[in-house]
């Protein structure tokens, strides 16, 4: 049994130690908001927060997540998250939407730390999050709008 702190709740799972957190969430706990896109840390669809840091859950073995505070899209809350989700909705960022849980997680982590991100900051924080629909124009605009919301 592995015990994980997910969205403020302790969850016991009976999985092999090397099972990535992504599959623990999706297959064992039925928390499907976190997405599988590549499995090799190349796309960011699986981004969760581990102790506040955006982390690729497809590369994080369940055993390595023990003792950390894990936040998924389902448990996202707070000022930065609200600002990001509002900006995303206001600007209709989504197309197919499959990458967007990861985009929102990455953007929230950025805004929580930096309410005045430059273009370079945005690129550094979000370049690892692929959007095959290429919603990047709106992602950039939404991050800036979210930063503004978070500042006020």
């Amino acid at each position: 049994m592995i015990s994980l702190d997910i969205n403020g709740k302790v969850r016991e799972v009976d999985v092999p130690e090397d099972m990535p957190l992504l599959w623990v969430l999706r297959d064992e706990l039925n928390m499907t908001g976190t997405k599988f896109g590549c499995g090799v840390a190349q796309c960011g669809a699986c981004t969760v927060h581990v102790d506040g840091q955006p982390t690729r859950s497809c590369q994080l073995p369940a055993s390595a997540a023990v003792g950390a505070k894990i936040t998924t899209i389902e448990g996202l809350s707070g000022k930065a998250a609200a600002a990001v989700q509002k900006a995303w909705a206001d600007l209709d960022v989504v197309q197919c939407g499959y990458c967007q849980s990861g985009q929102v997680m990455a953007a929230t982590a950025l805004i929580a730390e930096n309410q005045n991100p430059t273009d370079a900051d945005i690129e550094a924080a979000l370049d690892g999050n692929v959007c095959r629909c290429a919603t990047y124009v709106r992602i950039k605009a939404a991050v800036k709008q979210a930063a503004k919301l978070a500042r006020t």
């Binding site: 908001g33 995303w88 909705a89 209709d92 989504v94 939407g97 929102v104």
Partner: peptide, 19 residues
């Protein structure tokens, strides 16, 4: 007009086949 899916796809509740 906003897209009909503009909220469900930003909070993880939209259901894809994968889910």
């Amino acid at each position: 007009l906003h897209r009909l899916d503009h909220v469900s796809k930003t909070n993880g509740t939209a259901i894809f086949a994968m889910d």
